[in-house]
Amino acid sequence: MSAVPSATAAASHATLEARVARFPARQVELASQRVLSYREACETSDALPLVLLHGIGSGAASWVQQFEALSASRRVLAWDAPGYGESTAVPAASPAATDYANVLYEWLEKLGIERCVLVGHSLGAIIAGSFAAMHPQRVAGLLLLSPAGGYGAASAEVRETKRDQRLAMLNELGPQGLAEKRSANMLSAHASDEARAWVRWNMSRVIPHGYARATHLLANADLASDLARLKGRYNGRLHIAVGADDTITTPAACERLALAADTQLQVVPRAGHAGYIEASAAYTAIIDTFCRASAGQRSQ
């Protein structure tokens, strides 16, 4: 399919922009003059808050469909990870997952969120897993969607090659070119023009220095190690799902992570890597069901 959106897709994309405008970006100041940008809906619910962490080529706005569907019953928050949107990048040029998890801790502290259901997509799953391993008492349930495992357990040669290839592509293409070249890989053949336009819009807005640091994070991280540390702590409150047509974090790769976590893998039909965008009804149902199952875990 051509990277140039059709008139119908462009109109759908404009509609999505109008929809996400209902959940405007906010900023809070954290320690050391750092800023964290995020979007939020339904601040007054007594239900467990739901916190959403996006992947490497995305942002808080990508979760607009989940905001619309889930904020009627609970507080829903999505951050722009450090180095994305208006969020200050982590200081380290080659950060570890703990660097991002520490910022997540600061942000939740600032907002007074003591316990939540934490959802991470792709690279966001690496951050979510690190946070849950560091602060298990703060996480009532951990849901990982198409989790990226990271290359931290691979050889130095593999890690450097994967890192340098992605950095070279960023330097050559820039965010807009990256979106045109890479966004189609995020989706299955079943995705609508609207979903394709929305993934492209989100990817085109990444900040180069934030994306570069996230690329280093991907090279350094080892999600399987963090998940192994969580064995026995979550008792069914750790769940992994992946699209059947995900070619980036494949069902086979996600199965290995599920084994490390001693949990079962849920495979979603007719969905690619950005399943929560292209198959929003199915993924929103997964998130909602998981939140309700975690509701009894409000108390530590």
Rank of each mutant, 00 (worst) to 15 (best):
A128T: 11
L227P: 07
V158F: 02
A252G: 04
A132W: 13
F131W: 05
D226V: 02
G236H: 05
L170N: 04
A228S: 09
L167I: 10
T263W: 13
I207F: 01
V206E: 03
L227H: 05
G149M: 12
H209T: 03
L223Q: 10
A252L: 12
M186V: 08
A260Y: 01
T215A: 15
A219P: 00
N171D: 13
L144Y: 10
F131I: 09
L173M: 12
R138D: 05
H216C: 11
G236Q: 09
R205C: 05
H135S: 04
V206L: 13
R229I: 00
A219T: 00
A241E: 11
G141F: 04
N171F: 04
E160D: 07
I207R: 05
Q264I: 06
V242C: 05
G152A: 06
L227D: 06
I240G: 06
L170R: 01
D245R: 06
L227G: 08
A244G: 10
E194S: 14
D164A: 15
M203D: 00
E194V: 01
L265T: 12
D262V: 01
A179F: 09
R138W: 11
L145C: 06
I240C: 11
P147R: 07
A125N: 07
D193Y: 05
L170Q: 02
L265Q: 13
I240T: 09
V158P: 01
I127L: 14
A219W: 01
T247R: 13
N185Y: 10
Y211I: 10
A258K: 03
N235L: 12
T215P: 00
G141C: 03
